[in-house]
Structures are given as C-alpha cells and as structure tokens.
Amino acid sequence: MAEPAAPRPTTAAAWIGQGALYMLFALFIGVFSTWPAYRHLPADQALIKLSFTHNGKRVSECRQLSPAELAKLPPNMRAPMQCPRERVPVVVELDIDGVQSVRHSASPSGLSKDGASAVYRRLPVAAGQHRITVRLKDSPGPAAFDYSRDESVTLKPAQVLVIDFDAEKGGITLR
C-alpha cells in the first residue's frame, strides 16, 4: 500500500526546527519565571500597616426589666436582665505628620453585629522621620476617643511599621 503526501519530519531542517522549538520553550520558561524583577515598594519608601481586630463595646448596658415589661413577654422568654448583643463600630483615626490619612468606622462583624471590628490599611510613606498620631474609639455615645497615641518614629527604607491594638499592652501599639 503506497502512502504518498504528508511529509514526515525526517529532514535535517525538521530536526533543527524541533530543537529550536524545544529551546524556545525552555527559554520562555527560564526567562519569565524570574524576569522582569518586581519591586513592590519604591526603594525610598517604608510601609505603615494599620491593622487590628477589636471588640467595640455593647451599644447599651444591660437593663433590668420592670415587672410590667416582663409580663408582656411570653413565659419562656422572661429573663429579668435584657442585654443587647450588638456592638458599636470602632472608629479609628490615623494622622501622619499632622495630616489625617485614615478615618474609618469599622462595623462589627457577624449577622447580629456582635463580633469584632477589623481594620487593615497599608500606607506607603517616604522613609525617614514621621509623627504618627492614632486615635481609637470603641464606646457608644458622643464621648471623646477612648485611646490615643502620639509618637515620632524613624522608618528605614522598606521597613514595616505595624499599628495594632492590644488591650493587655495598654491599647494602641506600634512595632
């Protein structure tokens, strides 16, 4: 049975072509698996990360129900104390060198708004000295901020400064 047509890759040119295509494949992988280099933060910058998870206070205190109010409730729900589960949003402000950079009200998580509030912000700044002012409010009502911290920091290029909240360490922390 004759089998004409359909050239078979037996010529030298085909072998060279095959080698060239394998080389191209290898080169393609070799090159783009490391190049071009990626620089996330310009060389003269540092990064401030504002990050916390913190429980705001309850929207209101627990309250003793009056006998009249209790009587109106179905018998199986007559708890003498009523405690709201909902928490207030946590408000945070960050000034860098006296300029407000963040003002954020972090809503409590969870369907009944009884979880922690979380914030995560990344702020690239020029390396060098900066005055950092952080204020945080976690209580209901129009009162002033519950916590604040004011500090001067010197940041090296590429350094990461983390602003967090840790009640055990006295509130706002910088590290």
Partner: peptide, 27 residues
C-alpha cells in the same frame, strides 16, 4: 532550564520589611 538556571531561594522571609526587588515567577 533546571541546569542552566537552577532555582535558588531568595533571602529568608522577614516580616519587618517589605522585600525589595523580587525575581518573580510571572506564570
């Protein structure tokens, strides 16, 4: 490729800094 360009680690992770230029695997 493995012989011509062996994969090497970059500097150990250091979370107190944002790494400088990184040889990124674009794929």
């Amino acid at each position: 490729v493995a012989l011509a360009a062996p994969v090497m680690s970059q500097a150990p992770a250091d979370l107190s800094i944002m790494p400088g230029p990184l040889a990124l695997d674009w794929f």
